[in-house]
């Protein structure tokens, strides 16, 4: 029986559209990570002496710890609901590359938590006293860093999706793996604020992001397949 089949690109686009529509339907849940990031970064100036030099010193740490934690917030739901309602099985059994479809779902996680962070980062950095000249460097670092965070986080979410209470285990799995993002991202941000060349940590961050993008899809598919058994 010869049937007309859909191509992978069309299927992945439909999957992304579906997840974005679902996210739009619960915009309250969707906006939480962004709100969390803003509140965390805004709390630092309140807790410290409002001296510009002090704020600039802690700005990289505040930005990146906030980014790491807010990325973690939305991970729990990334595969859990799909695993419970059976749609994840349908993805695994549709005959299209499973890694690719899971990567499409990871892209949605980035669009909903990473991209808003990139857009809001200049505001948060300004609130922490970063000069205007530092913005291109901070933007580049946050863009690369959030991509890596979504990719690493997705593997953790896949591994823990079938567990009952997985919040803290997910954090324990993901945060150590995400340490390079924190180190290089914060270093690049600190150099950008100081007005010094930041190519070295930025390149290392880019290399780590590329490595995550290369390995994560396979690890992710293997983790989710185990979860589906």
């Amino acid at each position: 029986m010869s049937e007309q089949r859909v191509g992978f690109a069309a299927a992945a686009a439909a999957l992304i559209a579906r997840d974005l529509r679902l996210a739009l339907r619960r915009s309250g849940d969707t906006l939480q990570p962004l709100g969390f990031f803003l509140v965390v970064t805004a709390l630092f100036p309140l807790a410290l002496d409002p001296q510009l030099s002090l704020l600039r010193d802690i700005a990289p740490a505040a930005l990146w710890v906030g980014a790491l934690l807010s990325s973690l917030l939305a991970l729990d739901l990334l595969f859990r609901e799909d695993a419970q309602d059976g749609t994840l099985e349908q993805l695994a059994l549709c005959g299209l590359p499973f890694q690719g479809l899971l990567l499409a779902k990871t892209a949605v996680h980035w669009l909903l938590t990473g991209l808003p962070l990139v857009l809001i980062a200049p505001l948060a950095a300004t609130a922490l006293g970063a000069p205007y000249e530092a913005m291109p460097g901070i933007l580049a670092a946050v863009l690369l860093g959030t991509l890596a965070l979504s990719l690493i986080g997705a593997v953790g979410a896949g591994l823990t999706m079938s567990l009952k209470r997985n919040g803290s285990l997910l954090a324990l799995l993901v945060l150590p793996l995400a340490a390079p993002v924190l180190i290089f991202g914060a270093r690049a941000t600190a150099l950008a604020i100081a007005g010094e060349p930041l190519a070295a940590p930025l390149y290392l961050l880019a290399a780590f992001t590329v490595l995550s993008a290369t390995l994560a899809p396979w690890a992710l598919a293997a983790a989710v397949r185990i979860g589906l058994e």
Partner: peptide, 19 residues
């Protein structure tokens, strides 16, 4: 992949999104 493209599975869960 070729096998799955001919397979249609309906499990205990409907494979549909509630929202």
């Amino acid at each position: 992949a070729a096998f799955h493209s001919e397979l249609n599975y309906l499990g205990h869960d409907n494979g549909l999104k509630a929202d």
